[in-house]
Write a protein that binds this DNA or RNA. Sequence first.
DNA 1: TAAATTATTTAACAGCGTTAAGCAAATGTA
DNA 2: TACATTTGCTTAACGCTGTTAAATAATTTA
Lengths: 199, 199
Amino acid sequence: MASKDRILRLKEETRINILEAALNIVKVEGWQALSMRKIADAIEYTAPIIYEYFSNKDAILLELTRKGFIILSKDMRAAKEKHRLPEKQLEAMWLAYWNFAFAEKELYQVMFGVDVNCCLMCEILPEAEEPSLLVNDAIEQLMAPHKPSEDEICTKYYTFWSVVHGLISINMVRRNISDDITHEVLKTAISGIIRSIKE
Amino acid sequence: MASKDRILRLKEETRINILEAALNIVKVEGWQALSMRKIADAIEYTAPIIYEYFSNKDAILLELTRKGFIILSKDMRAAKEKHRLPEKQLEAMWLAYWNFAFAEKELYQVMFGVDVNCCLMCEILPEAEEPSLLVNDAIEQLMAPHKPSEDEICTKYYTFWSVVHGLISINMVRRNISDDITHEVLKTAISGIIRSIKE
DNA sequence: TAAATTATTTAACAGCGTTAAGCAAATGTA
DNA sequence: TACATTTGCTTAACGCTGTTAAATAATTTA
């Protein structure tokens, strides 16, 4: 019977609908607002139906994560193929990575556990400023011979912060990287930035 | 009446107890497991009492965030004061930052929105490997003259990833940084790493 | 001692993820 | 065609969440 096929196709379709609905809710209302009942509403079913397609909510997130990696891979592959020199390839690939993160912000968030707890941080927290002040002061001293602008100092500060924070959060989410390697990365990255400031 | 003072002191004490209980739960069971009722249990009250001290759950997280920044600031200040040369100060401060992140892992997580969605990622996701393969291939080519070891390539890869991911997540959590600066940081950081690989 | 205030709890609401039971429509079998 | 079985889907429920309002217990004030 060909109806078997048609039914299978319909099933596959609602599976896709579930994923699309989920991503859509997240795009409009954020990850916090995603619920099984809302997904069900969007696909015009009731919540328990979803469990016929995904064993639980995490399985939906995992599937979206997979979807994200597929897109990211494609983008980076395309970027790579546009160049022959490895240095150009690297630059193009990381730019593609960057662009993906903001073009598919929600996917990137679930892929790498970046949680935008904005409402929390937007409150006034004067204490949050001191670390940056401390560092900026040292950077300013270091760059003094170059007579740096405010922007240049700021730039160096974010470079430092990105390296360190990036390394930390990668370490926290992916526990399988050896401590030796991460520590070496940290040290060489920091001294690298310092060197780049001095010259 | 001195009893006024005593009561005020007691009130301050339970306020602290709430924060300590919250942090304790998080340390033992993770952020996901933190609930008002659990905090109440720990301080031997019922949940609504907490609302006399904090307007809602987010306010508790905000207070822990503040606490985190105070500790971080103290650590970085101490690190800075141990050196006179700004380059040494910078290195010491960022190491202090790094140490804080892992010594007070839970505080760091709430401060910077790093969510350890471990159970999700631990699943098998073969698609998650391709981006790293693409990049590693280019790094290997670039380093070919140096005859690099597997570890050296890996190290360079994590350096790239940290810079880019760090910059992205900082941008997502703190929306107030100008695009010009972040983009410049990205470009200079990438070319800096590429340069460091080549030499 | 009685009234007023304060401290604390119980009960409830609306929402969450998830599961089990029930119903209704479609399908297979005689 | 009539009955039995399977399928698709919903309703109801459990235990949890943050949060608020009402009720009660304890304490202070008059």
